[in-house]
Design a protein around this nucleic acid. Structure first.
Lengths: 152, 152
DNA sequence: GTCTTTTACATAGCAAGCCATGAAAGAAGA
DNA sequence: TCTTCTTTCATGGCTTGCTATGTAAAAGAC
């Protein structure tokens, strides 16, 4: 990628939290996508996979709450994951509107490898951060999110 | 939005930097989109607008470097912005492959209002952060990005 | 036991990311 | 000059987000 060859310059837009957070998120997604490609996965599916990693079934609504995305986003993501054989959906016997969702057997088997691949990228993001700095970053992000999420 | 009415619970996925950064980025984009709607703008156009805010013209390549997105992403964003009358493109007399891009007069006039709307959202993200904490967050994000961007 | 409201999903349509490919112009080498 | 390499941009195809809307089932009100 020659176009990105200039190393680093940090102009004023890097003082904008919105810009930096967006940039970091895109880098994460890009690296995750690359690391997950061998498994036929993409970054947007990770919240679902880890929400189902304990082997239990969850409703679509539960997954929406866990992933903090809109219901329509989750619906489409789950459709693709079912299409690709990553999850299975069975009708909920207690509620005919709902389905119960679980990992496919194949995906369950591969879970440890997937978790390892994810851990590698997460470690990359912490290359220049000490353990305390990593925790501090998470904590500060928590507060920024809280400020954005509570509508005044 | 009744679906989000449960206040907060912070399970283990909130200990993942990738998850938290993605969440923060989506919240930023959502709030920015809402705040920018009166101006016919969306969050993805902000890097372009602020890169051109000084009134000078820039090439598409320069905008790609400033926004840190792929060239194809910028191409499509600029097409939409031109379609919506936000920017103007003129052929570059020195290089027939390239065009020079500048804000439309209308957009230039509205720039202060846009900047004010953006500042409101940024302030919201800092509600629970002191000035030092805000700077610390930017600094830590800087290092996380650096770790992700340098391919080993 | 109806009627109304709420809840669970699906679908359509758009923006903004990405990758991969291709066309055309400029730059460089032989 | 002519050929090759590099750079600039456009396009197609995909995912992941969002809003808005619609449908069907469940839950509540009376």
């Amino acid at each position: 990628m020659k176009e990105d060859s200039k190393p680093y310059k940090w102009p004023s837009r890097t003082d904008s939290l919105g810009y930096m957070v967006n940039w970091a998120a895109r880098l994460f997604a890009r690296e995750m996508d690359e690391a997950l490609r061998p498994f036929g996965l993409m970054s947007g599916q990770l919240p679902v996979i880890f929400a189902l990693a304990d082997g239990k079934t969850r409703s679509q609504r539960e997954l929406v709450n866990l992933a903090a995305v809109e219901q329509s986003t989750m619906a489409k993501t789950l459709s693709r994951m079912e299409r690709d054989g990553l999850i299975e959906r069975k009708p909920d016997p207690n509620d005919r509107r709902s389905t119960t969702i679980s990992l496919s057997p194949l995906m369950s088997v591969r879970l440890p490898e997937v978790a390892a691949a994810v851990a590698v990228i997460n470690a990359r993001s912490h290359t220049h951060l000490s353990e305390e700095e990593g925790e501090r970053l998470l904590d500060l992000l928590h507060w920024a999110i809280k400020g954005l999420a509570e509508r005044p």
